[in-house]
C-alpha cells in the first residue's frame, strides 16, 4: 500500500471543488496556494462547515468551510430564491457529497466515507489525526473566500 500522500491525492479535492463551482454556477473559482495548518487542531473560521470523514486505506477528514454570503451567492446562481439556514446547510452538504464521490473514485473502493455532516461555527474543531499536518486550500470565488481543509494519513 502507499504510505505517503502524493500531490495528486490532495489535488483531487481542489479539482473537485473547482469543478463544482464551474458546473453549478458557471463561474470559475480560483484556488490559491495551499499551505499547512501548523498550530494545533484546525479551527474552523467560517459560518458553514461540511465535513466528510474517511477511514480505511486512508484515515482523516475533508472539510469544506465557507462564509454565509458566499453560499447565498451560490444559491442565487443556482436559481434559488429562499435563503434560510436550511438551504445554506443543504448546499454545503451537497458540496461535501461531491467531494466524497470524487474521493471514492480517486482512492478506490478500499475507502469508507461517512455521509457528510455539518459542523457548527465555533462549536467544534476538526478531529485531529496524529502525524501529518492538515492542508488548507483557500478558494476565491466572487470576492469571497472559502477553504478546503484536507487532513489525510495512510490508514492504520
Amino acid at each position: 500500500m502507499r504510505h505517503e500522500l502524493r500531490p495528486e491525492d490532495i489535488e483531487v479535492f481542489s479539482e473537485a471543488i473547482t469543478h463544482f463551482f464551474n458546473t453549478c454556477t458557471g463561474e470559475t473559482a480560483n484556488v490559491r496556494s495551499a499551505y499547512l495548518i501548523e498550530h494545533g487542531p484546525a479551527v474552523l473560521w467560517n459560518d458553514f462547515n461540511g465535513l466528510i470523514e474517511i477511514s480505511g486505506a486512508y484515515t482523516g477528514s475533508v472539510c469544506f468551510s465557507a462564509p454565509r454570503a458566499l453560499l447565498s451567492h451560490v444559491l442565487l446562481k443556482m436559481g434559488e430564491s429562499v435563503f434560510t439556514d436550511d438551504r445554506h446547510a443543504d448546499i454545503v452538504g451537497e458540496i461535501a457529497n461531491t467531494l466524497s464521490g470524487r474521493a471514492r473514485r480517486h482512492f478506490g473502493e478500499g475507502l469508507s466515507i461517512a455521509p457528510p455532516r455539518l459542523l457548527n461555527y465555533g462549536e467544534q474543531s476538526l478531529p485531529n489525526i496524529s502525524g501529518n499536518l492538515p492542508y488548507a486550500i483557500p478558494l476565491g470565488w466572487h470576492g469571497y473566500e472559502a477553504s478546503l481543509v484536507v487532513q489525510l494519513a495512510p490508514g492504520p
Binding site: E80, R87, D90, I91, E94
Partner: peptide
C-alpha cells in the same frame, strides 16, 4: 435529499 438539487432539477 437535497432540496436545492430537487428545486434545480424541477426548474
Amino acid at each position: 435529499d437535497s432540496m436545492i438539487i430537487r428545486n434545480r432539477i424541477a426548474r
